[in-house]
């Protein structure tokens, strides 16, 4: 009984996946591109950096990078706390 329910659910979800894959827009043509156009047009004059990716990562999305750095710091704190009692 359980297997039949799981099988029906799997078939439904898989058919949704197939339909959405068929209806997907063609590759390389996003529907909304205002944000990308703004970054490409204005990133060099606003931030002064030639690398648009770096200006997005560190300027427009600086808060996200702060989270990434904090996650790395937390990972190091966890590793050091786990092996705290180990000397030499």
């Amino acid at each position: 009984m359980k297997k039949i329910i799981f099988g029906i659910a799997f078939i439904i979800f898989f058919s949704f996946l197939i339909v959405s894959a068929i209806n997907m827009r063609t590759f390389g043509e996003p529907t909304y591109s205002e944000m990308d156009d703004y970054f490409i047009e204005n990133a060099q004059s606003e931030t002064g950096a030639n690398n648009v990716v770096t200006s997005v990562v560190f300027d427009y999305r600086g808060f996200d990078t702060l989270g990434e750095a904090t996650v790395l710091f937390t990972a190091v704190v966890g590793v050091v706390a786990l092996f705290r009692g180990v000397k030499k």
Binding site: G48, A49, S55, F58, D59, T65
Partner: peptide
């Protein structure tokens, strides 16, 4: 160039 971006790169 880049303002605060190179300093943030160095810090990270």
């Amino acid at each position: 160039t880049g303002g605060v971006i190179p300093l943030m790169n160095i810090a990270v």
